[in-house]
């Protein structure tokens, strides 16, 4: 059942939090504006900060279908918008021949009928009946090339696509569009201009703790606090790839599975692979460095408890 879009920033915030997505007020503001103004939401940020997640949460809370277009290099119309079912078309031609059908126009119409059309993500998103506009997630747009971006520009400004054999298909109701980018390439300004832009950064310690509590309620409070402080201090340090929120949650899960109630140097060393994904970073952390950080955050927690 589709629900109405929220009517205020506070509503949006509540809506997002209702499924355990702990959004800051800033993100809620942008999301609210995007829903209200019917503009695509362009989210940029490091990997694993919850860009994709927000689309899933919006689809879930608003009772919409989620349609995901994962971008990659070489993505083209036949895999993003539509494709004809060639095998079925060939059979149709053979059948027409066998039954002596000779009318060229008729055959053309039969072959390029809707039943031979394979709908890909973008067409599905535009083709939904009124009142059931889906959430369209265009994920990692920076992975495609400029040509696809230019095509998307047309789709996103008019919410319509043209299939030469069938005609123009226009959305009865524009879908809710979320675009994400990891910024491995600068996306063109013309596309960004049509969207509301937001940079999703790493959350601060307090909010990250909230996220851990909301998403991993089983983990002990001590463990959650220590993990969050540990990850936060890693992000401040000199790593090739700092861990995102997704890694934090993975780590909590892993530690919880190992029945750890709090962090100790040995467990940290054993499970670093969950948190860090580059060998250089792991080898830097292993041994005394992890212990140093651990001592530091335990001090911190102690002083927090005193005050």
């Amino acid at each position: 059942m589709t629900k109405q879009v929220p009517t205020s920033i506070d509503d949006t915030l509540k809506l997002l939090r209702s499924t355990g997505y702990v959004a800051g007020r800033v993100l809620a503001t942008v999301a609210f504006l995007s829903l209200k103004m019917g503009r695509p939401l362009f989210l940029e940020g490091e990997a694993g900060v919850g860009k994709t997640e927000i689309a899933k949460v919006l689809a879930e809370t608003l009772g919409r279908k989620l349609i995901r277009l994962q971008c990659y290099e070489g993505l083209d119309i036949s895999s993003a918008v539509y494709e004809w079912n060639y095998a079925a078309q060939m059979i149709e031609i053979r059948l027409a021949e066998a039954s002596g059908e000779l009318d060229r126009g008729r055959l053309g119409q039969d072959i390029f009928a809707e039943r031979f059309l394979i709908r890909r993500a973008l067409l599905q998103a535009l083709d939904a009946p009124k009142g059931e506009a889906p959430v369209l997630l265009i994920d990692e747009l920076d992975r495609t090339d400029e040509a696809f971006e230019a095509f998307l520009l047309e789709v996103l400004s008019d919410f319509q696509v043209t299939i030469p054999e069938l005609g123009t298909i226009r959305a009865a109701e524009p879908p809710i569009v979320i675009i994400t980018s990891n910024r491995t390439r600068e996306v063109h300004d013309a596309l960004k201009r049509r969207c509301l832009y937001h940079w999703v950064g790493y959350p601060d310690a307090r909010r990250e703790l909230e996220i851990v509590r909301a998403r991993r309620p089983g983990a002990s409070e001590t463990l959650a606090q220590e993990v969050v402080l540990f990850v936060q201090s890693l992000r401040g340090g000199d790593l090739y790839k700092a861990p995102g929120v997704a890694e934090t949650l993975d780590w909590v899960t892993a530690l919880h599975e190992l029945d750890a109630m709090s962090l100790d140097p040995q467990t940290v060393n054993d499970t670093l692979g969950v948190l860090l994904k580059y060998q250089d970073d792991i080898s830097r952390m292993q041994g005394t460095e992890a212990k140093r950080i651990l001592d530091q955050i335990k001090d911190e927690i102690r002083t927090m408890a005193h005050t």
Binding site: T7, V30, F32
Partner: peptide, 29 residues
Amino acid sequence: DALDAAMMGSLRTRDDFYWTLHAVFVKRR
């Protein structure tokens, strides 16, 4: 767009206003 956004009528604080304009005007980090 900014005028539209400001008219959405849900601005409570100065921060809301800040991020509303930010969403519309800022396109690059």
